[in-house]
Design a protein around this nucleic acid. Structure first.
Length: 579
DNA sequence: GCCGTTTTCGGCCCGACTGTTTTCAGTCG
């Protein structure tokens, strides 16, 4: 079983235990174990035989190790099977409705034998819910709306979409006199590839306790709101068109840091942080860090002073997932994360020669405007016929063009000549060695491997790595290589061989395909593979996507040294030649 | 079920909001 399936099974067991009214602390340990498994860079299938290694994972004890071994051996978890005799799997879906928690699910089951969304809808229509304790008109209304939303869209929102919604709201909030600082918190600030809802924090004189009511009214009047969910003393929650939920919190300046820390999360990071605070004689909430004995406030205005009062360095939001960052911060050993400004070149882009929209010059000017010192033009090779891919002769001709443009730029920006070549069925590259040898940047990509089995893929990737001209292993889908989904091929072996051959592995910065690569980026770092980050731009505007990819690298804990295109152009080329 | 710079037992993070109550349980983040 792959890690994701194991994690899901553990999480479901936690949900079922909660519905059954089980011990809350036992439930929490199942949740913790699920997180730990999901975040493990190593397939548990390999570790399962080694109890000691399982026990070394925080959150995994004797019982959980046995559970994991059981799942590996039989593909099932006895406690979960037991619970499913009493409860229905569809109840796990019911839990996703807003306002619906384990207690309510249990009540619906015991009183009405309702166990899924369909039956709940029927029970509502027949008016059977009102007979139950705690079920008034409003709660029933809320469930009705919840069911409609659930059917319409059940899912998270892409980071780039959430970001632009946040930016529009920010403009609106800034209009209100006395609101002068606005920060998105939550998973958006942590740079998660998808965002469940938007947490926006705001502060300024208008957010002081005695004045905040007017600002709350202003927020609630935000025109794009389609559905006001809640309006409290200093918080407004609503849905935007498209279903994105937004929580806006208006906070006094003295506790802004505490609130930012609190609402940035992640939940597990906060739980651990508060535990550490307790051990040191403090209590931490969204208003302040305070002494337990006297109640005296120790910190609150900034995040830095809170972490510092607890003996830690400030932790970049991207790392706040409770995966060892607290220990690293206490030991002053946090990595210095890469910044977008560290990048000196974008080395994967297409032009009109194949399926790009712009000319070489236009791409170069656009990159120059974004502060890059160099780019590589890497159009497709002939095997991608549908893109009008280049054969040997056209590749040489195109290279000549690129060199001319490079000359014309007169050193303002270096324009390197490259290719995004295709890996053929036998692992060969679809251009001659002669041509490949004359190019500065050869990316070998996996287009033709889409429909292949995953075992086949890894074999081909490994063969392609043996080609001396391949400098970068590309993954233009963002799904093939560095992904978190269950995969059968041995990615570790490909990364290890890439490290040995000194071939860099590419990380593409697509906003719509940021599909969960952080775990494998971490694995690449552990193995020592160099990363090249690029946008695979087909249009000058695509160059702006770099920021999304950088967030991914940061979440994986990567520093400038891990990424080749932070180097000056000559060092970058030398590093590639070492392959 | 996990875990230990007070512990191998006895703890385990914290507060707001909602709806239904008339003092609180449940949900949420």
């Amino acid at each position: 079983m792959d890690n994701k399936s194991i994690a899901q099974m553990l999480a479901e067991t936690a949900d079922l235990l909660e519905i059954s009214g089980g011990d809350p602390f036992r439930i929490r340990s199942y949740r913790r174990a699920a997180e730990a498994v999901e975040n493990s860079t190593e397939p548990l299938a390999i570790m399962a035989g080694d109890t000691k290694r399982l026990l070394a994972i925080p959150g995994i004890g004797k019982g959980m190790a046995a559970n994991i071994q059981e799942m590996e051996a039989r593909g099932s978890l006895p406690l979960r099977d037991e619970l499913l005799k009493t409860y229905r799997p569809s109840m796990l879906e019911l839990l996703k409705l807003p306002g619906m928690g384990p207690k309510t699910v249990a009540l619906l089951w015991e009183a009405l034998q309702v166990c899924d969304v369909e039956q709940l809808q029927t029970a509502i229509d027949e008016g059977r819910l009102e007979a139950l304790p705690r079920f008034g008109k409003k709660l029933v209304e809320k469930l009705k709306r919840g069911i409609a939303d659930y059917r319409k869209n059940s899912g998270r929102f892409r980071l780039d979409q959430a970001e632009s919604a946040a930016e529009r709201l920010e403009l609106y909030l800034k209009e209100f006199p006395g609101i002068d600082r606005i920060t998105p918190a939550g998973s958006l600030r942590r740079g998660r590839e998808t965002v469940g809802d938007l947490d926006i924090l705001a502060t300024g004189p208008a957010c002081a306790e005695e004045r905040v009511a007017a600002a709350v009214e202003y927020v609630a009047a935000y025109p794009p709101i389609v559905d006001l969910i809640a309006k409290g003393q200093n918080k407004v929650s609503f849905h935007l068109r498209g279903g994105l939920q937004v929580d806006v919190r208006l906070l006094p300046e003295a506790s802004y840091g505490a609130a930012l820390q609190y609402f940035t999360g992640s939940k597990m990071h906060n739980v651990s942080l508060r535990q550490r605070a307790l051990k040191r004689g403090y209590t931490l909430n969204e208003y302040a860090l305070a002494r337990l004995d006297t109640g005296a406030v120790a910190a609150g205005a900034t995040e830095e002073e809170i972490y510092s009062a607890l003996g830690m360095d400030w932790i970049p939001p991207e790392l706040r997932e409770n995966q060892g960052e607290l220990e690293a911060a206490a030991a002053h050993r946090l990595p210095t994360l890469i910044e977008q400004s560290d990048l000196r070149g974008d080395v994967h882009m297409h032009t009109q020669a194949t399926d790009g929209r712009n000319t070489i010059e236009e791409m170069a000017e656009a990159a120059l405007a974004r502060g890059y010192a160099y780019i590589a033009i890497t159009d497709h090779s002939k095997n991608l016929a549908m893109t009008n891919g280049l054969d040997d002769a056209r590749a040489v001709e195109h290279m000549r063009h690129i060199r001319e443009v490079d000359q014309r730029m007169e050193g303002r920006i270096r324009v390197l000549a490259g290719i995004e070549a295709d890996i053929l069925g036998d692992g060969e590259i679809d251009l001659s060695d002669d041509v490949l040898a004359r190019l500065d940047v050869v990316i070998a990509s996996v287009h033709s491997l889409f429909q292949q089995s995953e075992e086949e893929m890894s074999a081909r990737l490994l063969r392609a790595l043996e080609n001396p001209h391949v400098k970068i292993l590309g993954h233009p889908t963002g799904r093939l290589l560095l992904r978190r989904e269950p995969y059968n091929f041995d990615l570790g072996a490909v990364l290890k061989r890439a490290a040995e051959r000194r071939v860099a592995v590419e990380h593409n910065a697509y906003p719509d395909r940021l599909d969960l690569c952080d775990i494998h980026l971490r694995q690449a770092k552990e193995i020592g593979v160099k990363i090249v980050i690029s946008t695979d731009s087909h249009h000058t505007a695509d160059l702006d996507n770099m920021r999304y990819g950088v967030r991914q690298l940061r979440r994986a804990g990567l520093s400038r040294e891990d990424v080749l295109n932070t180097l000056p152009v000559q060092d970058f080329l030398d590093a590639l030649r070492r392959a």
